[in-house]
Simulated scan of single mutants.
Amino acid sequence: MSKTSGNKMILGYLVGALGASFFATKGILIKLALIENVDAITTLTWRMIIALPFFILIGYFGYRRRVAENDGPLLTAKSLLTVAAIGALGYYLASYLDFAGLTYISAQFDRLILLTYPIFVVLIGAIFQGRRLKPKMIIALFVSYGGLAVIFARDLQIDGQSTIIGGALVLGAALSYAIYQVLAKPHIDRIGARLFTSIAMTAAGLVVIAHFFLINDFSDLSLPPRAMMLMFAVATISTVIPAYLISISIGMVGPEPTAVIGNVSTLVTIGLAVTILGEDFTLWHAAGAAMVLIGVISFTQMDRRAKEAAARKMQMPS
């Protein structure tokens, strides 16, 4: 590897770590918004209102470039509606369940539950696509969810039913996002990640806004200055900026290294939750977090190696 290539790789890792760190602020900012009496749907609505213009603009220029490269239209009405529906599932349902779950559980526990979504992706593949799960992957799965069980048991003693409700909501968010990942892949391969994300985010944003106005008046969007600062932070620092930092990192070092680097978000969330929100971090939390991280990283690495082995096998001459 040349010095230039090595420097590019290091820069790509740093960009990925920075993007993951920005993503990690989401739970903290939502918790701070709850302290300001801003509920989950209002925070999610402001997040989309502020972020949508960025995604629409980037999507427009991305579409023009892709059309020029492909010498023809990329999207039919049917494919556009399909991508929009997938976006509503991935970004509306998953985000809403996640935001609602944060009302009941700590930012740390929320982040650790969401971290397990790649396991759901593989399990969906095993159930519907006949993919085999190796025994080591099953062990890693149990280690991850064993870690969650350790934290769940400890928090259940303190917070009771809130831990059950919040944990179930965020687990639903992780499952929704995993389904989104599975459904999104063929469309991303065809039209590109940037254009797909822009369409999906726009569709999800419109559904979020419609949801808000079904149960609220327009005047309910009016918030005090401190709360509005948090809304802008959730939309920019926790949404738009990290989304494109992660895209840049994927372009520089690839999706697998970026995904592994993304695990730093959990450590950042824990640090911010303890220092800013004053959340507890006991030996039980440390042990549970370590088990989740070890299990998820091991699981994703084994899944990557299995995919690479399958790809090599397909390329071998018969």
Results as ranks from 00 to 15, higher is better:
162 S>V: 02
163 T>L: 04
163 T>N: 08
163 T>E: 12
163 T>V: 08
164 I>K: 01
165 I>L: 11
166 G>C: 06
167 G>H: 08
168 A>V: 09
171 L>Q: 09
171 L>Y: 13
172 G>I: 05
175 L>M: 10
175 L>Q: 06
179 I>L: 14
179 I>K: 09
179 I>C: 11
180 Y>I: 00
181 Q>E: 14
182 V>M: 09
184 A>N: 06
184 A>T: 01
185 K>M: 15
185 K>W: 15
185 K>I: 12
187 H>D: 13
187 H>K: 08
187 H>T: 07
187 H>C: 05
187 H>L: 11
188 I>R: 06
188 I>P: 10
188 I>Y: 11
189 D>H: 13
190 R>S: 15
190 R>Y: 15
191 I>F: 00
192 G>W: 01
193 A>G: 10
193 A>Y: 07
195 L>A: 08
195 L>D: 12
196 F>L: 03
198 S>N: 06
200 A>N: 02
200 A>T: 01
202 T>D: 04
202 T>A: 12
204 A>H: 01
204 A>S: 12
204 A>F: 02
206 L>T: 09
206 L>S: 08
207 V>K: 05
207 V>I: 12
209 I>D: 07
209 I>N: 07
212 F>Y: 10
213 F>K: 00
213 F>E: 03
213 F>L: 01
214 L>I: 10
214 L>G: 14
215 I>E: 15
217 D>G: 08
218 F>Y: 13
218 F>W: 13
218 F>V: 12
220 D>S: 14
220 D>L: 02
221 L>A: 05
223 L>A: 09
223 L>E: 09
224 P>C: 07
225 P>Q: 12
225 P>G: 07
226 R>S: 13
226 R>E: 15
228 M>N: 09
230 L>P: 03
232 F>Q: 04
233 A>Q: 08
234 V>P: 01
234 V>Q: 12
234 V>N: 07
237 I>T: 05
237 I>W: 05
237 I>H: 04
